[in-house]
């Protein structure tokens, strides 16, 4: 089977490392370069696969959230702006920048992964290359198989609710329960037979499927990009601290 010249699991490692950088990074300097690189690349690649509109909406929600959070939790330091009902202090700007940079880093790198691969190949690669337990891989593969089915369940449940004169969905806990029960009821029966179907086809004898592919140029490129960014992040912070 001819596929792109890299393993989806390399992308997974890349994305996971970038997310760790976001956790480690405690300064704007540290996060700046990886965030810009991943943000630009991720949103560029992602807009083709996922659609620009959705990504812009996603960005607005997050920037808005970061701003609200910054005002609530980090409104300290010198006052920069006095709006009368609220004072905006320097802490807000710093926190807003930090959270936004992390957002671009994490979401950008995840978008790179999702754009250059797909869920099915990713799950297969996690099982054969990263050797995650085959039971977890089976669950994930089945979840991915279920997705359109459960979307259809949700649609049918919404139709029935509308016909019965009920609101489709609110945050009201009782509504949530009456939505969950039919969804799980249909899901339970399906899972029961799917489980039987998997067991009579040898799930419990499943050995980890070993991939016989070696690292390719594509994989090496991914790891090179990864290392370069980690190094840059640490070096930038170091340089700025020294001078």
């Amino acid at each position: 089977m001819a596929r792109a010249g890299f393993k989806p699991s390399s992308l997974f490692i890349y994305s996971l490392t970038m997310a760790s950088l976001a956790f480690i990074g405690r300064s704007v300097e540290f996060l700046l370069i990886p965030a810009v690189v991943n943000g630009v690349l991720g949103f560029g690649l992602g807009s083709r696969k996922i659609g620009l509109k959705l990504l812009v909406a996603l960005m607005i929600i997050n920037v808005w959230g970061a701003l609200i959070n910054a005002v609530y939790f980090s409104n300290v330091g010198t006052t920069l702006l006095d709006l009368g009902f609220i004072k905006i202090n320097s802490g807000v700007v710093k926190a807003f920048l930090m959270v936004s940079l992390r957002f671009f880093l994490v979401v950008g790198s995840t978008l790179i992964m999702l754009s250059l691969s797909n869920a099915r190949d990713l799950i297969k690669s996690l099982e054969s290359d990263l050797r995650i337990p085959s039971s977890v891989a089976f669950s994930l593969a089945y979840a991915f198989r279920l997705f359109p089915l459960m979307a259809r369940d949700f649609k049918e449940i919404s139709i029935a609710r509308e016909e019965r004169g009920l609101k489709t969905f609110t945050l009201n806990p009782k509504h949530l329960k009456t939505l969950l029960t039919p969804l799980l009821s249909v899901g339970y029966e399906r899972a029961l037979w799917a489980g039987i179907s998997s067991e009579v086809r040898g799930l419990s004898s499943r050995r980890k499927v070993r991939s016989n592919r070696n690292l390719s140029v594509g994989d090496l490129l991914i790891f090179a990009a990864l290392s370069a960014q980690v190094l840059t992040a640490f070096l930038t912070e170091l340089t700025l601290r020294l001078f």
Partner: peptide, 12 residues
Amino acid sequence: LQDPEKQLIMPT
């Protein structure tokens, strides 16, 4: 099994 929709367990 009876219902292929329930029997099929893989995405492709």
